[in-house]
Design a binder for these strands. Structure first.
Length: 382
DNA sequence: AACAAGCGCAACCGCCTCATA
DNA sequence: GTATGAGGCGGTTGCGCTTGT
């Protein structure tokens, strides 16, 4: 059955459309302030407005409501929107419930204009939050500026690494070659045919390094020697992940949102979250004795220790009950018995709410995609 | 200065959901 | 169980402003 529009056709000529005037706004605000809005359909007549009820509702909820927060979105809000969108998709109204004072319309507009553009520039598909695999566009996306930026940031990370802030590297080598070590593989990725000389140089540099940290090894291995079919795509995927995880890594924090069939997987995911992208996908756990959702809100080493401790005490995470557990290092874990399939939507909703409401939630990036959508997968490696 | 193109955002449209008769 | 209608939601449009030529 096709319903008529909310404003009957016989009234169309009378009902005003288009931008609201200050006078109309004042009438609407005055009426709702005094009488409320129990019935939008009858409201316009009662308020002396020549608008349809739907238009009044929209004007009120999106613009006139007193609790609306106007102005530029903060970085925190932007990050939260991206997180939420990666989990919820285009559920703008649900996203809006997590950002006080922001309307679904405002968030939708902001995402489609600002965030969408940003993600595209980063090589991320704004709809799926996964790296784009359009080969013809990759080279345009990863431009020289990004390479330089990436190299500088990688250099910072390696310095952090050598200072023991990230990882447990024993490598105290001079970092002078770090930039070269990082930028050459990226150049190689863009155009292998014309970077043979650079690759040779890289090989020489690698030989000169007495000890290479495990992170560096993994990074270069995955950039230069992706195995098996789809090597190019793997390179691109990893490159995107790598470029985009740098800022998060630089903060020295590891956070993850995952559905994890644990046992050994607990350790694997913990490590992965500590240094996203540098643990191989093959580290996925086989056994499934329980399902857990872990939020690492800590410095990297602390996060690993916290989860490892949980796993080492008992592979089944004995002290993680049906609700949340908080580790001393700031890690928050949620778990329930059974496999991922045994966790119903309500449980996921509850977890989702708890995590997303957490101001410290920081997204991480896994092989299954940038800002992984855990709800869609039984297992999301972070 | 004039025009075109791009951008941001308020508002609209039409479909969906849910409550109610 | 079905029809109806209000409210809600997401997609889209179009206007006004800004920026570039």
């Amino acid at each position: 059955m096709v319903r008529p529009p909310c404003c009957g056709s016989e009234d169309d000529e009378k009902v005003k459309k288009g931008p609201w005037t200050a006078e109309e706004d004042a009438k609407l605000v005055d009426y709702i302030t005094n009488k409320g809005h129990t019935n939008w359909k009858s409201l316009p007549k009662l308020a002396g407005l020549n608008r349809c009820g739907k238009s009044c509702r929209l004007r009120w909820t999106n613009y006139l409501r007193p609790d609306i927060k106007r102005g530029k979105f903060s970085e925190e809000e932007e990050r939260l929107i991206i997180n939420l969108h990666s989990v919820l998709g285009n559920k703008w109204s649900r996203i809006a419930t997590h950002l006080s004072g922001r309307t679904d319309n405002e968030i939708k507009n902001y995402y489609n204009t600002h965030i969408r553009k940003k993600l595209l520039q980063m090589g991320i598909d704004p709809q799926t939050h996964k790296p784009r695999t359009d080969h013809s566009q990759i080279a345009q996306i990863i431009n020289l500026t990004q390479l330089i930026g990436a190299a500088q940031q990688l250099n910072s990370i390696m310095m952090l690494n050598n200072n023991g802030i990230i990882g447990n590297s024993n490598n105290n080598n001079n970092n002078n070659n770090s930039v070269a070590n990082s930028i050459i593989p990226l150049l190689h990725l863009l155009n292998p045919a014309t970077t043979s000389a650079a690759s040779t140089f890289l090989a020489q540099q690698q030989q000169q390094q007495q000890i290479m940290s495990s992170q560096e090894e993994l990074l270069l291995a995955r950039l230069l020697n992706p195995a098996g079919a789809g090597a190019v795509q793997q390179q691109e995927l990893f490159c995107n992940q790598f470029l985009n995880t740098l800022p998060a890594l630089a903060t020295g924090r590891g956070s993850s949102l995952m559905v994890n069939n644990n046992n050994n997987g607990a350790l694997a995911t913990a490590r992965e979250s500590a240094l996203p992208g540098l643990v191989s996908a093959e580290a996925s756990p086989e056994a499934s004795s329980s399902t857990s959702l872990v939020h690492h809100n800590n410095n990297v080493n602390g996060g690993v220790d916290g989860v490892m401790e949980a796993g080492n005490n008992n592979n089944n995470y004995p002290h993680l009950s049906n609700n949340s557990s908080n580790f001393s290092d700031g890690t928050t874990a949620f778990s329930s018995p059974g496999t991922a399939a045994d966790v119903d939507d309500n449980q996921y909703e509850a977890w989702e709410k708890m995590l997303l409401m957490d101001d410290d939630f920081v997204p991480t990036f896994g092989d299954s995609g940038f800002f992984s959508s855990w709800k869609d997968d039984d297992l999301v490696l972070e």
